[in-house]
Measured scan of single mutants.
Amino acid sequence: DIIVVALYDYEAIHHEDLSFQKGDQMVVLEESGEWWKARSLATRKEGYIPSNYVARVDS
Score class of each variant (00 low, 15 high):
residue 1 D to R: 11
residue 1 D to V: 14
residue 1 D to I: 14
residue 1 D to L: 14
residue 1 D to W: 14
residue 2 I to Y: 15
residue 2 I to W: 10
residue 3 I to T: 06
residue 3 I to N: 04
residue 4 V to K: 01
residue 4 V to Q: 01
residue 4 V to H: 05
residue 4 V to M: 05
residue 5 V to K: 05
residue 5 V to G: 02
residue 5 V to M: 08
residue 5 V to W: 06
residue 6 A to M: 04
residue 6 A to V: 01
residue 6 A to Y: 01
residue 6 A to Q: 00
residue 6 A to I: 01
residue 7 L to S: 02
residue 7 L to G: 01
residue 7 L to C: 10
residue 7 L to T: 03
residue 7 L to I: 09
residue 8 Y to Q: 10
residue 8 Y to C: 15
residue 8 Y to K: 10
residue 8 Y to D: 06
residue 8 Y to R: 14
residue 8 Y to A: 09
residue 9 D to M: 04
residue 9 D to Q: 05
residue 9 D to H: 07
residue 10 Y to L: 04
residue 11 E to P: 06
residue 11 E to S: 10
residue 11 E to F: 11
residue 11 E to I: 15
residue 11 E to C: 12
residue 12 A to M: 04
residue 12 A to F: 02
residue 13 I to Q: 13
residue 13 I to Y: 09
residue 13 I to V: 13
residue 14 H to I: 05
residue 15 H to I: 13
residue 15 H to T: 13
residue 15 H to Y: 12
residue 15 H to S: 14
residue 15 H to C: 13
residue 15 H to R: 13
residue 15 H to V: 14
residue 15 H to W: 13
residue 16 E to Y: 14
residue 16 E to I: 08
residue 17 D to S: 09
residue 17 D to N: 10
residue 17 D to M: 14
residue 17 D to T: 08
residue 18 L to R: 00
residue 18 L to H: 02
residue 18 L to Q: 01
residue 18 L to G: 01
residue 18 L to K: 00
residue 18 L to T: 03
residue 19 S to T: 08
residue 19 S to R: 05
residue 19 S to E: 06
residue 19 S to G: 08
residue 20 F to D: 00
residue 20 F to M: 05
residue 20 F to R: 00
residue 21 Q to L: 12
residue 21 Q to K: 15
residue 21 Q to M: 11
residue 21 Q to S: 13
residue 21 Q to A: 11
residue 21 Q to I: 10
residue 21 Q to C: 14
residue 21 Q to F: 11
residue 22 K to S: 07
residue 22 K to Q: 08
residue 22 K to V: 09
residue 22 K to L: 06
residue 23 G to M: 03
residue 23 G to D: 06
residue 23 G to I: 00
residue 23 G to T: 02
residue 23 G to F: 05
residue 24 D to Y: 02
residue 24 D to M: 05
residue 24 D to W: 03
residue 25 Q to Y: 15
residue 25 Q to R: 15
residue 25 Q to H: 15
residue 25 Q to E: 10
residue 26 M to Q: 00
residue 26 M to N: 00
residue 27 V to S: 06
residue 27 V to D: 03
residue 27 V to L: 15
residue 27 V to T: 07
residue 28 V to G: 01
residue 28 V to W: 02
residue 28 V to D: 00
residue 28 V to C: 05
residue 28 V to N: 01
residue 29 L to A: 03
residue 29 L to G: 02
residue 29 L to H: 04
residue 29 L to D: 03
residue 29 L to N: 03
residue 29 L to P: 00
residue 30 E to L: 10
residue 30 E to Q: 10
residue 30 E to D: 14
residue 30 E to M: 10
residue 30 E to H: 10
residue 30 E to G: 08
residue 31 E to N: 15
residue 31 E to D: 15
residue 31 E to P: 09
residue 32 S to H: 14
residue 32 S to T: 12
residue 33 G to R: 04
residue 33 G to A: 06
residue 33 G to Y: 05
residue 33 G to S: 06
residue 33 G to E: 06
residue 34 E to S: 12
residue 34 E to C: 15
residue 34 E to L: 14
residue 34 E to V: 12
residue 34 E to T: 14
residue 34 E to H: 15
residue 35 W to K: 12
residue 35 W to N: 07
residue 35 W to D: 03
residue 35 W to S: 06
residue 36 W to P: 04
residue 36 W to S: 06
residue 36 W to I: 12
residue 36 W to H: 05
residue 36 W to Q: 04
residue 36 W to R: 03
residue 37 K to T: 05
residue 37 K to W: 15
residue 37 K to I: 10
residue 38 A to T: 04
residue 38 A to P: 00
residue 38 A to Y: 01
residue 38 A to Q: 00
residue 39 R to L: 09
residue 39 R to A: 07
residue 39 R to C: 09
residue 39 R to Y: 11
residue 40 S to F: 06
residue 40 S to D: 09
residue 40 S to L: 15
residue 40 S to T: 07
residue 41 L to S: 06
residue 41 L to R: 05
residue 41 L to I: 11
residue 41 L to Q: 06
residue 42 A to E: 12
residue 42 A to K: 14
residue 42 A to Q: 10
residue 42 A to N: 11
residue 43 T to G: 06
residue 43 T to A: 04
residue 43 T to F: 03
residue 43 T to C: 05
residue 44 R to N: 15
residue 45 K to S: 09
residue 45 K to F: 07
residue 45 K to T: 07
residue 45 K to L: 12
residue 45 K to M: 12
residue 46 E to S: 09
residue 47 G to A: 01
residue 47 G to L: 01
residue 47 G to R: 00
residue 47 G to W: 02
residue 47 G to F: 01
residue 48 Y to W: 15
residue 48 Y to G: 03
residue 48 Y to Q: 06
residue 49 I to A: 01
residue 50 P to Q: 06
residue 50 P to A: 03
residue 51 S to I: 08
residue 51 S to Y: 10
residue 51 S to E: 04
residue 52 N to V: 08
residue 52 N to C: 14
residue 53 Y to P: 02
residue 53 Y to K: 09
residue 53 Y to H: 10
residue 53 Y to M: 13
residue 53 Y to L: 14
residue 53 Y to C: 10
residue 54 V to Q: 01
residue 55 A to H: 08
residue 55 A to Q: 13
residue 55 A to R: 13
residue 55 A to Y: 09
residue 56 R to T: 08
residue 56 R to F: 12
residue 56 R to A: 08
residue 56 R to D: 04
residue 57 V to K: 07
residue 57 V to D: 07
residue 57 V to M: 11
residue 57 V to H: 07
residue 57 V to L: 14
residue 58 D to N: 13
residue 59 S to C: 13
residue 59 S to P: 13
residue 59 S to A: 13
residue 59 S to E: 13
residue 59 S to N: 14
